[in-house]
Design a protein around this nucleic acid. Structure first.
Lengths: 218, 218, 218, 218
DNA sequence: CATGAATGAGACTTCATTCAT
DNA sequence: TATGAATGAAGTCTCATTCAT
């Protein structure tokens, strides 16, 4: 999930926005953020397709047309939302992972990170886990590559751990990555759909780490 | 996932269909199945919203209107599809689980069952994991209860295993259930979206079982 | 203005229509014609851009969506209209012109034909002369080639007449073609916009022929 | 095409502009001209409806809103453009025609004038001949009266020439006017759409005059 | 039972115009 | 005067659903 792959998708609009941001904030530089944040709420409540652009506009307190000053289309809005949030995850990964020395510490960090990203942002959790899967094009053309890169990063941690003898070698690193991601996703999904208790995800992170590491011990 | 919860949603059409099935096969009793099977293929390729009813009709070789002789709506078609396939899973669970004596055996059975259901039916895998999440109403009103029942069943296996001392007691049974389901779902998702190798799911089932049971050992 | 160039533009819809027509008239095989004829009236009154698709639908007594069963888009509707009517002109040209032996007779025939096509169809006259020029894309991509072919045909008549000594040789055949077409178009335009008297175009045709032939005498 | 008919349409803006012009050039008096000249270019390239006000603003190097300091609306901009250029034609007619003594000289003058106006201004030629026809309201409410006045002026030349025996009397003066205008328009149209050769229009003017006068000889 | 032409509600998006700065 | 971000009305087109045959 390299930086370059992330910046690959750049609409005319977002390029314009960047120029605008670089030139310093204009009168309503926060409008883009207001729209994004309204979109998280509305998408989470109704799903991508059932959400009308006018719903988001109303929730953001702007006119329908204003949406299109900041995003190319409804789909671009969802993608931007996704990117915006995935960016945080990636930055965090690039900064924190190298500091950990053992595979165990790294897996724990990934787990805490992925769940922690959502902690306190129930709507975002639902968008990321459920809504993004609603646009097949988005899923296949955009999410899939990033998704693979993310899985690859996890698999590499496992594979390195196996080489160093820290983890058992009789399981496929990629399977572990897929299962780990799925477990995290499943926890987030049920957390988002059910009662999202305060601090629940943190406890879940600790327990999942514990099970996974015990299960992967040589 | 009790029988009663399953029969909660019963449209006029599905009730009629059941009566018909009970009365034995009619001349065009297979048309319903032809439509369902076409729907699996088309939904899997294009997603729920991007699929037009006329696409399914064409794939099934029937007229658009014919769909509405067997299903109330496009959404009813998806729900019926889901029910039809989940039914197999439930029957299997009710028959096989009681035969297993240890928690380990039961968890292994659940894992093999859930993945085995999809093995050889790539399209169905995609529908179940991705497409079903596209209709928020379906997800929240229909799937959620069944989903909970399914998770509860897994959690009970864990909880029983903890009471008997077979499994470690310091993790939440529900968390284990959610993580297990998620791991299975994640494996199925990546299998469906990526290269679905022959026999891959069977191997995955064995490895996941091994990790999970080792991780849950007291 | 060869046959092949005419059939070059064939939308999915029109191809479907042809198949349908070939297979014999369905229940409402005349609906396409009803829409076309309504379109002539409404386009003539309001122009291409100011006309809403729903206006045409109302005038034709069909639902908005029905338009799209027969035409790909609003623009396709205009193009189809144009083609449909130009076809008559071309058929006539291919059949009648070869029968005439002198350049004078041929020019007279062209003049009578172009104006006669519109006689009794005031709306069509306006569509052809005014409305078609409203869609620049249509004008440049579609009309221009056919237009050139039409002008070429007239120019050839002149050029042949010059070679045979029947017409004066000191004027450019293409200029004569452009001026003749323009004169006819101008007459049609003012006839359409003003009081379109019965028989006026026939008289106009005779007078224009007379002036043109006298002007071109060697 | 009397002066009074020309001043019939006078928006608040144009009245203000006239006052300004009468008072002598202001600092930004050229901005209006910059906008008009940009409008000619953009209208000619894309047509009236396909042209966005913002396109013109960009081409003129002003902000969108600035357009509305000089013109009431997009349509007013087109009308102003038309008036501005037609003004030249009218001034010329009022000054030059009375100097000519014969009908032949007058017709030649009209022809040279109408084509000469466009010579060297290909964009303007396209605007006048094609684009102006795109706004039906403009065509019917504004252009038609001026158009009639212009045709009347030509018809009067013919009619006078018939009375003096200089031109044949068996053709309708109005028909001649309409055909002459049409021929000129047709030449300008094809010149604008095709390869606009240098000097082409001047040659065309001479040939057309020659044909027309020979055709109208008694 | 089956058909598929017809319907029409509703969504996304554009763009002329305004107005606070 | 000049700006350009914001507005919101309005239009094209899609597609689930119906119903006459």
């Amino acid at each position: 999930m390299s930086e370059s792959s992330l910046s690959a998708r750049k609409s005319a609009k977002s390029r314009r926005d960047e120029a605008r941001r670089a030139a310093g904030p204009r009168r309503s530089g926060d409008k883009r953020e207001r729209i994004l944040s309204a979109a998280v709420r509305v998408f989470a409540r109704s799903g991508f397709f059932a959400t009308r652009v006018s719903d988001i506009a109303k929730a953001a307190g702007v006119a329908d047309g204003t949406i299109y000053l900041y995003f190319d289309s409804k789909e671009d809005l969802l993608v931007s939302l996704f990117e915006d949030r995935v960016d945080r995850l990636l930055s965090y990964m690039r900064e924190e992972l190298p500091k950990k020395k053992t595979a165990a510490d790294r897996l724990e960090a990934v787990i805490e990170m992925q769940l922690g990203l959502l902690e306190g942002e129930r709507d975002l959790a639902e968008v990321v886990t459920v809504i993004v899967r609603q646009s097949t094009r988005l899923m296949k053309e955009y999410a899939a590559p990033h998704f693979s890169a993310y899985l690859d990063a996890i698999a590499r941690i496992v594979s390195d751990g196996q080489k160093s003898g820290e983890l058992r070698a009789d399981v496929s690193p990629h399977l572990v990555a897929r299962a780990t991601f799925g477990a995290l996703d499943g926890i987030a999904l049920t957390w988002a759909l059910g009662r999202a208790e305060e601090g629940g995800l943190k406890r879940a992170a600790r327990q999942l780490s514990s099970i996974l590491l015990a299960g992967l011990a040589p």
